[in-house]
Design a protein around this nucleic acid. Structure first.
Lengths: 252, 252
DNA sequence: GGTGATTTGTGCGTATGTATT
DNA sequence: TAATACATACGCACAAATCAC
């Protein structure tokens, strides 16, 4: 185990546990070196790793500071996600947290690859409608959602138009006989590609959380969405079972 | 956007979509260089990135192959997780998939930091029971779960003993008047520290999925667990709402 | 077992564009 | 504006591992 690891662990724990809130100035590299009995190079290595993860921001001459760290929560189980996911559900959520939401949309026709074909009960190569939604929060790109609809669902509907469906695609579908009653969320994580890092304006060491959601009516799958969340500014939250206490409130 | 990116994207898509199943040999670096009109160095960069993510494995003299890719699914919503999570629930699941499960356990007393204190309704510095569970699958370390119990829950119970609770701690607690009726799962991802990468035997480019679960009885939180999943061999799956169709079965 | 062909691993040098200082 | 550093990209050469004959 490298020597800088202990410093790195301490700092990360202090930041993530809230002991050092955003804006806090770290002690200087020289001070940390003396305190931990390390060479300044080792201190820099620990800080470089934190910087790579987006936890701190170093500025020459000023010092190193805990990064302003807005983490938005994506509620996997709450109603907005269930009733108006594609468009306004998430965005109302964002605005509830006092932030400014915006999104850009592209719609294309693409052939289904093997995986999406299996999930959507179509044949490989069949045409799917792809809706690519880049969501901004406070004018920063925040997450990228790519949704796929089979033609049997999308044909002749506003889903095929390159425009926002004001009430959200999920709500629109429910109003037209395609009510989504269940879904499966698969969650993985991986490093971003260079292109993804660029469009989402994330540093390369930050992972992407990948949420692959398949939505079902009572008798068929109707949509697959893949949402990419930069892990330094997003977390997913699932509320399961029955909660009789308020988790945000402290002890009574 | 770098030129090697197109090759990287093509290869990754071919692998993740199933077009190139595990064991498939990639074309040689020289061939790919000619095909994509790149220098060999650029081809190597694309492959290095895939290798870093654990998607391919290169061997001198033989070639580069799509990695044998066992991905185990952690079911966030199924009963094993709800009734016997800590011990045997997950492991029965693993054995159901035809793999060999094993785990090592350490139990310690630790003071609560600010974050865990807030979640468990105790004061910062109060003593918690820490149960550290390293799970192996087929003799490879697979995930690391660290659970924290407040003393009001753990005192005088097998939870404090450094031994497996055969029926699982959750089941044990339910049998003794602490039935868990709800829980909150918070999901994030981050790069592993060097120590974590070592104990979980993962390559450094692979992210960790972090699942932070707070479990509640009808009137209080009773446990916080933080589970670390190397992202290249784990995925989380949540089944939500009502599913009237079998998602694993193809189209009828 | 030996030999040569193939393939990855590694080193070096050069050039270019971008961002930082 | 100049200097510096860094990532990207290209090309070449050789070493090391593997495999077929």
């Amino acid at each position: 185990m490298p020597v800088y690891q202990r410093l790195y662990d301490d700092l990360r724990h202090a930041i993530t546990s809230g002991a050092m809130p955003p804006g806090t100035k770290l002690r200087s590299e020289a001070e940390l070196a003396k305190q931990y009995e390390l060479a300044r190079g080792s201190v820099r290595q620990a800080i470089a790793q934190l910087s790579n993860e987006g936890l701190v921001k170093a500025t020459a001459g000023r010092g190193t500071f805990v990064a302003e760290h807005v983490v938005l929560t994506y509620y996997g189980t709450r109603l907005p996600a269930l009733t108006g996911n594609s468009g306004d559900g998430y965005m109302t959520n964002v605005e509830l947290e006092g932030r400014k939401g915006r999104q850009s949309l592209e719609v294309r026709m693409v052939p289904a690859d093997a995986d999406r074909a299996r999930r959507l009960w179509v044949h490989e190569g069949d045409t799917l409608v792809e809706r690519r939604l880049l969501r901004y929060v406070d004018d920063k790109p925040w997450s990228l959602q790519v949704g796929y609809y089979p033609m049997r669902v999308a044909e002749g509907t506003p889903i095929m138009a390159a425009e926002n469906v004001p009430e959200g695609t999920t709500k629109w579908m429910a109003d037209h006989g395609l009510e989504q009653v269940g879904r499966i969320d698969e969650i993985t994580a991986r490093p971003p590609s260079v292109g993804e890092a660029a469009t989402l304006q994330m540093s390369k060491g930050v992972p992407l959380i990948v949420l692959l959601r398949t939505a079902y009516t009572v008798d068929q799958p109707v949509r697959v969405t893949e949402t990419l969340f930069p892990a330094d500014r997003n977390r997913l939250l699932y509320e399961l079972g029955e909660l009789h206490v308020d988790p945000n409130q402290g002890m009574p």
